[in-house]
């Protein structure tokens, strides 16, 4: 029996889809059987970030409405044969699916896969409720900005109210130079404020833009962001991995033990 993980944030544009794509690809690299589900109906993007936009035939809504079998809608990744994508419909809206239908779908998927990773839409309305309906566990993505942290706090409250205990935090787009001169909150500052467990700190890395341009998640490559995402994947599987020193120069990795 697999695990259903929802990637959520409240605020838009903090890196949910990028995190979902890298987490899924990284777990596939670790030989796990993974399916990514884009629950952002009407504003799908996970397909382009994964570079699979040309292969979509059926969508999540088709599966729920029983226009096709679940297996027919799953798109196999270009590189990893143990990685699949269930895309969202683009021409429908969030009300096309109910939380009960999502729960049924994720239950079916986790019987097949080690990890079912849900890319949650921004906001706290129907799309969010659908995405968390079948989730066992949540990763909350935020950036070190007041608006994103505030929304993350709200999301953490809503997750806990919906019986998804102990959400874990990914702090994205950190800039060590700004943190050093006191112009950006550090991951530890954000953790202090939100009082949740930290599972990842990802630097602001231009390689992410390049990877998204190419439709190939960078997890596991030599970039700092690639390393940071790989570490998150290993922590998700239960491994204790020390946090990266984000100040290390590119190509030169020094590690430090946190606390």
């Amino acid at each position: 029996m697999g695990e259903v993980i929802v990637i959520t944030s409240g605020k838009g544009g903090v890196g949910k889809t990028t995190t979902t794509a890298n987490l899924g690809t990284g777990l596939a690299k670790l030989n796990k059987k993974v399916v990514l589900v884009d629950t952002d109906i009407g504003l799908r993007n996970l397909d382009v970030v994964m570079g699979l936009e040309n292969r979509i035939v059926y969508t999540l809504v088709d599966v729920v409405e029983e226009n096709c079998k679940l297996k027919q809608a799953l798109i196999r990744d270009k590189k990893y044969e143990n990685l699949f994508l269930l895309p969202a419909a683009q021409t429908r809206d969030k009300t096309s699916v109910t939380p009960e239908q999502m729960k049924k779908l994720t239950d079916e998927l986790k019987a097949e896969f080690d990890y079912v990773i849900l890319d949650c839409p921004a906001g706290i309305e129907q799309g969010f409720k659908n995405a968390i309906a079948g989730a066992d566990r949540a990763l909350v993505v935020t950036t070190p900005e007041v608006s994103a942290v505030r929304d993350a706090d709200r999301i953490i409250g809503l997750l806990e109210a919906n019986e998804i205990k102990n959400p874990q935090l990914v702090v994205n787009r950190l800039r060590p130079d700004m943190i050093k001169r006191g112009d950006m909150m550090s991951a530890d500052d954000v953790v202090d404020i939100l009082a949740v467990e930290l599972i990842g700190q990802v630097p602001d890395d231009e390689n992410i833009v390049v990877a998204t341009n190419n439709g190939e998640p960078l997890v596991g490559d030599n970039s700092l962001a690639g390393q940071a995402y790989m570490n998150i994947c290993r922590r998700v599987t239960g491994e204790a991995v020390p946090f990266l020193d984000l100040e290390a120069r590119k190509g030169l990795f020094s590690w430090f033990k946190k606390k």
Binding site: R150, D153, G182, D189, D192, I193
Partner: peptide
């Protein structure tokens, strides 16, 4: 006072 400290203080209050 650094801007990150200002951010922290404001966040704590608003939360």
């Amino acid at each position: 006072k650094s801007s990150s400290d200002v951010a922290k203080d404001r966040l704590k209050l608003v939360l």
